[in-house]
């Protein structure tokens, strides 16, 4: 099983290297694609990328851990990021945060047991006039209130 999994990862990385190239500047686009396709950048994937681009695995690790939207820890299918910057803070992000924690049964930085949701803080997301703002994977929700949280989570659990 593990061998099949590893083979799949290697194939994926070879494909990505074909697509983005094998220069150093292809590293981040490759890691972004691995994150989107696998939900995580695993140790094995980092080794394989290093081999493919002919750089040290520590270099790959250094880059993967630098960026908030990469990272090496496993994440859920939906990564929910709540903006904590001043304008969203003043617009009431604390109430939204509490409701998210209550409804998901986890705290910030954690992933639900079913692997569906990860809850994280984010810094300014560029919709300061319509806070509190929430990013779910690539989708942005604005003017989120605690009473809307349940609705949003339901729509993610069972997409229409």
């Amino acid at each position: 099983m593990l061998i099949i999994q590893h083979k799949k990862t290697i194939d994926l990385i070879k494909d990505l290297a074909e697509k983005h190239g094998r220069q150093r500047n292809a590293l981040i686009p490759i890691l972004q694609d691995i994150r989107d396709k696998c939900g995580q950048i695993s140790d094995f994937a980092m080794q394989a990328v290093a081999e493919e681009l002919k750089i040290e695995p520590t270099e790959v690790y250094g880059v993967a851990t630098f960026y908030a939207f990469l990272g090496v820890q496993p994440r859920g299918r939906y990564v929910i990021r709540l903006c904590r910057t001043l304008s969203c803070d003043m617009a009431g992000k604390d109430d939204v945060a509490r409701q998210l924690e209550n409804d998901l049964g986890i705290t910030f930085g954690e992933t639900t047991k079913d692997g569906l949701f990860t809850l994280e803080w984010a810094n300014c997301m560029g919709v300061c006039d319509q806070g509190p703002a929430l990013l779910v994977n690539e989708d942005l929700y604005t003017q989120v209130t605690p009473e809307k949280v349940g609705e949003i989570l339901d729509s993610l659990r069972c997409p229409a």
Binding site: P29, Q32, Y67
Partner: peptide
């Protein structure tokens, strides 16, 4: 695409990011 790092707005950090570095 960037990957979530405020410092990458600083132009030389941005260039580092474009080149595939921290």
């Amino acid at each position: 695409m960037g990957s979530g790092a405020y410092v990458c707005g600083e132009e030389t950090a941005l260039l580092e990011a474009l080149e595939g570095h921290r």
